[in-house]
Simulated assay, not measured.
Amino acid sequence: MDFAGGGGGGGASLSDMHQRARRLLLSVRDGVARIERLASAPTSSSYSSSAPLVGGSGAGDPAAAEEVRREMAQIQGLCAQMDRLWRSIPAKGQRDIWKRKVEQLSEEVDSLKDTLHKHSLRQRKRILEAKERAELFERANGESSHILQIFDDEAQARQSARNSSRTLDEAFATGVAILEKYSDQRERLKRVQRKALDVLNIVGLSNSVLKLIERRHRVDKKIAYGGMIITVVLMVAFWRLTH
């Protein structure tokens, strides 16, 4: 609805100001979008610590950001003038319409201003992060040889521990096999003893012969147990030597 002829000279002035403000608003939108596109480009992340800052916040294109801020200030100035003019319109309906138009312009400008401010904060954060990464890389390059040496030492220690563990496992398995073999031999000796006793009882051998067999059995048991103990002692000694 055109109010160029309504509300006296104030209506025409409002219409002209509103059209000018809308054109500036479109330019501001394009400028903010262009700044954000430049900031998201791959080369925008490589800022140096001496990069120029716009409004103290930092932006991808200082000249473009400054132009956008200037146009925002012009729109806000036009909104202030229109806010005074619409109040002088006699018709209440037209006053309400122009009030809403001016408020919409002010809200859109505030929203774009907030977007530009957030963008500037992100840019400052990116610059700070890039500077911190550069400092970390410099320290890492200076200490790389020391760090690599530490990694080599740790790798050698882990390999040595794995070798010791594997050797101990093999020794333990050998000891278990020996003990099982001794156990099988003891069972066989018991069976042989029982058969021998049965045979001796049948043929009527003397008690002295039986006692001799029992003593031999006790000696065999001591030999078997001694072998087991010696095997365990050797395993423990080997484990201590490897650690």
Rank of each mutant, 00 (worst) to 15 (best):
E214C: 11
Q76T: 10
A21M: 06
R188C: 08
Q159M: 09
L105E: 02
K131N: 07
V109Y: 02
D153L: 15
S49Q: 06
Q123D: 13
R133H: 03
R95S: 03
S144A: 12
A171M: 08
A63K: 05
E154K: 09
R122H: 07
E36F: 01
L200G: 07
G6S: 05
M228C: 14
L25Y: 00
E135N: 05
V68R: 01
F238E: 11
Q159A: 14
A91M: 10
I75C: 04
K113P: 00
E143C: 09
L136F: 02
Y225P: 13
S183D: 15
A65H: 00
Q76G: 03
V68I: 13
Q76D: 11
G10D: 06
K118T: 13
T115M: 14
A12K: 00
S183L: 15
A140C: 06
L116W: 01
V192Y: 10
E129R: 08
I97F: 02
S208E: 15
A4S: 06
I202C: 08
R122D: 10
T43L: 10
I150F: 01
S27N: 03
S165G: 05
V102P: 00
N207H: 06
D2C: 02
T115D: 10
S46G: 08
R70F: 07
A4F: 00
R216A: 12
D96M: 13
V102T: 08
S106I: 12
G227H: 05
K190C: 15
K190R: 12
G8Y: 02
L168R: 05
S49F: 07
S165V: 15
P52K: 07
S45V: 14
E143D: 13
R240Q: 11
E132K: 07
D169H: 10
S145D: 14
M228P: 03
D114Q: 14
S45Y: 05
S40F: 05
R23W: 00
M17C: 09
E132M: 09
G6A: 13
R162T: 14
Y182G: 10
E143Q: 11
R139C: 06
E66N: 11
N207M: 08
P52L: 14
E180Q: 11
H217S: 13
S27G: 01
S111L: 13
G77V: 01
H243F: 05
A59H: 04
A171T: 09
F137Y: 05
L38S: 04
L116G: 03
S40N: 04
M72T: 06
R191H: 10
E132S: 11
A91Q: 10
Q193V: 14
L53M: 05
S111W: 05
V219T: 12
